[in-house]
């Protein structure tokens, strides 16, 4: 356990020493402090009648609902439950996208430093297996992302729940999805860095895959209009590559508390992550440094 704790400690300290990690904690703190102290609302019969931000009237949030009695769409004050879900969806969405993009950017120098000549050879000379050494690094990165996600999302959820009295614990199911999808994308940075010894390439590839997943998410519309060969290739990409964008829909359903209708993009992304991590671990165990 001691060598693993050493590897973990090194990763935590390195991540904390990076300004970007401290910045992410600062932004998270700001987000839930704002929600705690700057946001005030009046709730009448389960709906928001008035909303104030920093003491300024922001008007009551309204929503369009279909009135079955009149058969028309009407505007009415947003229910407090809907408001809490909306805020949480915004925060979760932002954490998912920005958190992953910034997280990958922040951890790029970490893997570069880890594999740097003069550092990696010193680490490899210690009586610890390569597998354990890399696992310590990965665990450190994953745990940091988990802590950051819990701090931001959990903090926002807690302050909103305390403020509104609306407790929606199912919202927190989204945290492991954020961490796991980050791990999937980090596997690309890690493995590419190990194979090529250049971390920048891994970051470009990971960002490229996120961008490409936006195209893959339109598979229902694109496949029918593609030629059979192109459609088959597109399908191959859809099943083989991470579906980062499509997982957002699952996230939204989790936050809403509704049933998840499509879990396949998440599962196929996880399988991709496991395979790429496996490849990275295999390469790390075999290669010369």
């Amino acid at each position: 356990m001691r060598p693993l704790s050493g590897s973990l400690l090194l990763t935590f300290r390195e991540l904390w020493a990076m300004r970007i990690t401290q910045g992410m904690f600062a932004i998270a703190s700001l987000a839930w402090l704002l929600l705690s102290f700057a946001l005030n609302m009046d709730i009448v019969e389960g709906s928001i009648s008035a909303l104030k931000i920093f003491g300024f009237d922001a008007g009551a949030p309204m929503e369009r609902v279909f009135d079955e009695a009149t058969g028309e769409w009407v505007q009415q004050a947003t229910s407090i439950d809907q408001f809490v879900v909306g805020i949480n969806q915004f925060v979760f969405g932002a954490s998912y996208f920005l958190g992953t993009l910034l997280g990958l950017f922040a951890t790029m120098p970490l893997i570069a430093g880890f594999l740097e000549q003069g550092r990696i050879d010193l680490l490899l000379s210690k009586p610890v297996s390569r597998l354990r050494l890399l696992f310590g690094h990965l665990l450190g990165v994953w745990l940091t992302v988990l802590v950051l996600s819990c701090y931001l999302v959990g903090g926002v959820w807690l302050s909103l729940s305390l403020k509104t009295g609306v407790w929606l614990p199912h919202v927190l199911q989204s945290i492991p999805v954020i961490v796991l999808m980050f791990a999937v994308m980090y596997s690309v940075v890690l493995t590419t860095s190990i194979i090529s010894r250049t971390s920048g390439l891994g970051l470009v590839l990971a960002y490229g895959l996120i961008f490409f997943s936006a195209i893959l998410s339109a598979h229902d519309q694109l496949i029918p209009v593609l030629a059979p060969t192109s459609a088959a290739i597109f399908k191959g990409f859809y099943h083989a590559l991470p579906n980062f964008i499509e997982v957002v829909m699952m996230q939204a359903q989790l936050v809403e508390g509704s049933d998840v209708t499509r879990i396949y993009p998440f599962i196929s992304s996880l399988i991709f992550g496991v395979i790429i991590h496996g490849l990275g671990i295999y390469w790390f165990a075999k290669r010369d440094f």
Partner: peptide, 9 residues
């Protein structure tokens, strides 16, 4: 840190 990696108590 390097002592931990060397499994030193």
């Amino acid at each position: 840190v390097y002592g931990r990696l060397s499994d030193l108590p």
